[in-house]
């Protein structure tokens, strides 16, 4: 089997009822609707195209050994992206390790334990968190979280990978909660009733029956949470201390670091269009794009939930 996108290239989209049951006047409208539907494909292609167009020349102009070196010091022509890659990975892993228990725990509580009235309070709060602009979280990170962590852990500075990771955890949590809650809600009530009828406690039912039954959805939730965290820009840029250095050990999380996203955001404003530095920043953009592409495609494979047709019987 060819992947979807390949086989699409050989088959034109077919016309169905909707394009036939139309008055001549509606023809342009219907075509417009159809074009809008297809526009998303166009945008993805455009984004990829422009990233490649601006970013690929980096491979030539900054040469590969420099690009995959360990020093990021653009002024002197060192464009090693490893420190940034590691920065992103360390912060994201730490963040997701915090977000998994928070997100899955909260979704379990909301969907399996909480009475309705508490649910009705919790859900809007989670939505508020999902809607908080990352610059606001970054601001709170600077003003509140960083000083707290510096005092609490006795660090030289509060602007560190850890502060970024904690903020990211909160940014990723709403994603994890809402998707994993959806997954838990699709587990048939009969599973739970059967387990409870056999004498299992609520916790046993939840842990041994419901959660495993929803595991692909929960996995999707975690993956999309990772995607959310790795792509986050402003909050991490504001609190991680902006130090593009290669981490030397596990304690790197307690030191200032710099992620890929933050690097783009903080340096793009100052580079000359078309310069090697500019191209390398776009090259980092390509890496981020591919990251999110992979995560999202895999996640949607993991959770191929069939679309249920709505009730259709009139006769």
């Amino acid at each position: 089997m060819l992947p979807t996108w390949v086989s699409c290239l050989f088959r034109p989209p077919n016309e169905n009822d909707c394009m036939i049951e139309q008055t001549p006047r509606e023809r342009p409208i219907n075509l417009l609707v159809k074009a809008s539907g297809y526009s998303s494909i166009l945008f993805v292609i455009l984004i990829l195209f422009f990233l490649l167009r601006e970013g690929l020349p980096a491979v030539a102009s900054a040469d590969l050994s420099s690009l995959f070196g360990t020093i990021w010091y653009p002024i002197e022509g060192y464009y090693g992206i490893w420190p940034l890659l590691f920065g992103s990975i360390i912060v994201t892993i730490t963040a997701i390790l915090i977000a998994i228990p928070l997100g899955i725990g909260t979704s379990l509580y909301i969907s399996e334990v909480a009475p309705v009235w508490i649910k009705n309070i919790l859900k809007p709060i989670i939505e508020i968190l999902a809607g908080l602009p990352s610059v606001v979280l970054g601001f709170i990170g600077i003003q509140v979280a960083a000083p707290l962590l510096r005092e609490g852990l006795n660090l030289p500075t509060g602007l560190s990978g850890l502060t970024g990771a904690i903020l990211l955890a909160f940014i990723a949590t709403p994603t994890v909660v809402s998707i994993s809650e959806d997954a838990l809600n699709t587990v048939p009530a009969s599973y739970r009733q059967a387990a409870l009828a056999l004498g299992a406690t609520r916790w046993q039912t939840l842990w041994n029956i419901t959660l495993p039954a929803a595991k692909s959805g929960v996995l999707t939730a975690v993956m999309l949470g990772i995607g959310r965290a790795i792509g986050e820009t402003m909050a991490v840029m504001m609190v991680t201390g902006n130090a593009p250095v290669m981490p030397h050990g596990l304690d790197a999380i307690f030191l200032p670091i710099r992620t890929m996203t933050a690097t783009i955001a903080s340096e793009m404003g100052e580079v000359a269009t078309g310069s090697p530095h500019y191209q390398v920043l776009f090259f980092i953009g390509i890496i981020l794009f591919l990251f999110s592409l992979t995560i999202n495609v895999v996640a949607s494979w993991v959770s191929t939930r069939g679309l249920k047709r709505s009730e259709r019987s009139l006769s």
Partner: peptide
């Protein structure tokens, strides 16, 4: 669409 939803905001900025 799923991909558009996942692309980091800073990459949109680059685009």
């Amino acid at each position: 669409i799923i991909n558009l939803a996942g692309i980091p905001s800073v990459v949109y900025g680059l685009f």
